[in-house]
Amino acid sequence: MAKPNINRYLRQSLDHIFQNNKKWVSSKKQTDASFFDKLSAGQSPDYLYIGCSDSRVPANEIMGLEAGEVFVHRNIANLVPNVDLNVMSVINYAVRHLKVKHIIVCGHYNCGGVKAALTPADLGLLNPWLRNIRDVYRLHEKELDAIPEEHARYNRLIELNVMESCRNIIKTAAVQQSYQENQYPIVHGWVFDLGDGLLKDLKVDFEAELANVQKIYCLSPGSNSEH
């Protein structure tokens, strides 16, 4: 069993958080007295952010956005597996019900999940989740194998993994149909650099990717008449 002094320490560290929360509330009210009244009326975020669970990459902070501005899903290594109900329900809700204008997939350099996927080790429960990243490697095997330096290869896999998640988002009926009707959402791929706090835009050509994906994954009848 845990020793009582450890418990007391843990208790204190959570109390500290409740104090922080109160401070945040009063600072928000000082700048805008009706801040919370507006939020309680509902949410209409422009962005859906799909990122890594990693503690060093907090969505709102890195984008400089306030409470109410970005709908967030975070999992290990910002994956969008085709059969994952968790992320698929997030995309569906964000596109069909919140009508977000942008979907951002944000990876980050030094990602522990991507590193683990490159390591020859049995990680039990994590294996099937991380196998999606090994599949991304396999899809880009030639390009990755041609990079001699290990760290550069690892960084490139992080970028390619983001691109693959973008493609998987574009495969969904919700995104294809909404884009056809409204010209949104647009899907973007970013990588966050922990070393300097900056975001790198991978400049996904959304329309080109959409056309590419729809050759096989079209779920929006009539949308690809131009191709």
Partner: peptide, 9 residues
């Protein structure tokens, strides 16, 4: 995921 619940903030 609700946009009004940014935990770290």
């Amino acid at each position: 995921s609700d946009s009004r619940c940014p935990e770290t903030t």
